[in-house]
């Protein structure tokens, strides 16, 4: 049995751990609210843009001359996986889940004979994927605090992506991020961002131009589309990162809540052990004194 002193030290150390996890939970809860509001504030823009792109895309006939972002490169060989995670750990399975989905899809693609490249946003995703696919990295970005990302950052990444696409580095780009469903559930999600997939338009969004005949386009459909498509990539990235920020905090809050509870259980168990040890010591002492007195 551990000595009384050792137990006491152990209990105190668990107690201070519990204090830290509790504080982290509070911080995550506060940040979560902000991240959630930010994610919701960005939705109207993304939805409108999506519906406009969809209604335009349905009107423009895809030909050789149409922008590559909508027509594709005509090949389906090189796939780029844009994996958005966070820079920090201690958020439960948040980063692991995204990386796992990306890994599974990558293995499927490779089994089909396709080439997979990685473009990571966030240090944690990079750490996992780098171990498995060390030679497939194109670029990795460490965005820092996800909650503080501005649209300008997302646009920078998107411009980089589009430039790489135009240069023929890849044919299809998939985006991996965690969809924020609720505080308790975050779902790792895959989305094709380049070229614009027809299925990227969520069901239920009515194309905003219900009467297509009467709409005036200025300059013309193709020019507007060419302007909007790179913007759309930026928006999708931005939205994914906003969702990620909210998911990260949600996941962190749950993880820290569990940690706090576990620490509480541990403290309870250790206290019982400590009390028993203390009583045993007292009993032994008493027995010694009594038997000593009896011996006289």
């Amino acid at each position: 049995m551990a000595s009384l002193k050792a137990l006491k030290v152990r209990i105190n150390s668990v107690k201070s751990t519990q204090k830290i996890t509790k504080a982290m939970k509070m911080v995550a809860a506060a940040k979560l609210r902000r991240a959630q509001e930010a994610a919701e504030a960005g939705r109207p823009y993304a939805q409108r843009l999506e519906s406009v792109v969809a209604s335009l895309a349905s009107k423009v006939t895809v030909s050789e001359s149409s922008p590559k972002l909508i027509a594709g490169t005509g090949k389906d060989q090189v796939h780029l996986f844009v994996v958005a995670t966070s820079d920090k750990g201690l958020a439960g399975a948040f980063n692991t889940n995204i990386a796992r989905l990306a890994r599974r899809r990558a293995q499927e693609m490779i089994a089909e004979g396709k080439t997979v490249k990685f473009y990571t946003i966030g240090r944690k995703g990079r750490a996992v994927l780098n171990r498995l696919f060390p030679k497939s990295f194109v670029h990795s970005i460490e965005p820092g605090d996800l909650g503080k990302l501005a649209f300008a950052d997302a646009r920078g990444y998107a411009e980089d992506l589009v430039a790489r696409y135009e240069a023929g580095e890849f044919d299809v780009a998939h985006l991996f991020y965690s969809h924020f469903k609720s505080v308790l559930t975050q779902e790792p999600t895959e989305q094709q961002i380049i070229p614009v997939a027809p299925s990227s338009v969520p069901e239920g969004t009515v194309p905003s131009t219900a009467a297509p005949a009467a709409v005036i386009y200025e300059p013309d459909e193709e020019a507007i589309l060419a302007d909007l498509l790179p913007r759309n990539v930026a928006i999708q990235l931005f939205r994914a990162m906003r969702e990620n920020a909210a998911s990260e905090q949600g996941s962190k809050m749950t993880a820290m809540d569990n940690a706090t509870r576990n620490a509480g259980d541990l403290i309870k168990r250790l206290s019982i052990q400590y009390n028993r040890a203390r009583q045993a010591a007292i009993t032994t002492e008493l027995v010694e004194i009594i038997s000593g007195a009896e011996a006289l």
């Binding site: 406009v52 335009l56 131009t209 009467a211 009467a214 709409v215 005036i216 386009y217 200025e218 300059p219 020019a223 507007i224 302007d227 909007l228």
Partner: peptide, 19 residues
């Protein structure tokens, strides 16, 4: 401020899309 010039929009404007 449209790409091809400023335009004013009042109630009942014809459907339009412009950069």
């Amino acid at each position: 401020p449209g790409t091809e010039g400023d335009f004013g929009v009042l109630e009942g404007h014809a459907p339009l899309m412009s950069t």
